[in-house]
């Protein structure tokens, strides 16, 4: 991964993290990107803690240092603890996470590792635990945040490590 940023936004800072990032170089899509981001958080049936679980699992798998370090305040307010976050590792199936949480992580891994290979057992378990609306929401959560993580990784310039930082949905 490149330590050097591959695209730089030299415009005057606005105070908005996304607008001041390299994404601000393409204003034609940024507003729509931010609009979708907010709707992903607020416009579907999944709770913020569920969304954050999937987002952080993706962040770890894609290895986006920035995404891994962020905790959204609405997810923390919804009950996502650092204890729970610590269980989002590759051995999550043997953790104390609830079955619902484990299914969220299994779905995320399936999307990232082998989307075409989803088996009947996982599909059945997902359909038992989640409504159709929740599964479509989870799909869009993972696709959206995975795209964002890959975007950040592709543009380079991330440090090797960052401290955990809490933020609001931009």
């Amino acid at each position: 991964m490149s330590g050097q940023a591959r695209a730089v936004n030299t415009d005057k800072p606005t105070g908005n993290m996304m607008r001041d990032s390299a994404l601000g170089l393409v204003p034609e899509t940024l507003d729509h990107y931010m609009g979708l981001n907010r709707t992903i958080w607020e416009g579907g049936p999944l709770r913020p803690a569920d969304i954050e679980l999937a987002r952080l699992r993706n962040a770890r798998k894609v290895n986006c240092v920035f995404c891994k370090s962020v905790r959204y305040d609405i997810a923390k307010a919804d009950g996502l603890s650092e204890n729970k976050v610590a269980m989002i590792e590759d051995d999550f199936r043997g953790s104390d996470l609830s079955e619902r949480d484990k299914l969220i992580l299994a779905f995320t891994d399936q999307y990232l590792n082998d989307p075409a290979g989803i088996g009947e057992e996982l599909k059945g378990a997902l359909r038992t635990e989640f409504t159709s609306q929740e599964l479509v929401h989870l799909s869009m959560v993972v696709a959206h945040f995975s795209g964002f993580s890959r975007c950040a990784v592709s543009l380079g310039g991330m440090p090797a490590e960052l401290p955990v930082m809490e933020m609001s949905v931009p």
Binding site: R6, A7, V8, A22, L23, L25, V26, T29, Y33, Q110, Y111, P115, A116, I118, S139, M140, A143, H144, S146, G147, F148, R150, C151, S154, L155
Partner: peptide
């Protein structure tokens, strides 16, 4: 240019995501 690179990675994120969902949704 820089903006073109940003545009490309932003687009790839969305297009790759929709491709994966088409497969996952079967």
């Amino acid at each position: 240019g820089d903006a073109g690179l940003v545009m490309l990675v932003e687009a790839l994120g969305i297009l790759d995501g929709m491709t994966r969902l088409s497969l996952l949704w079967q």
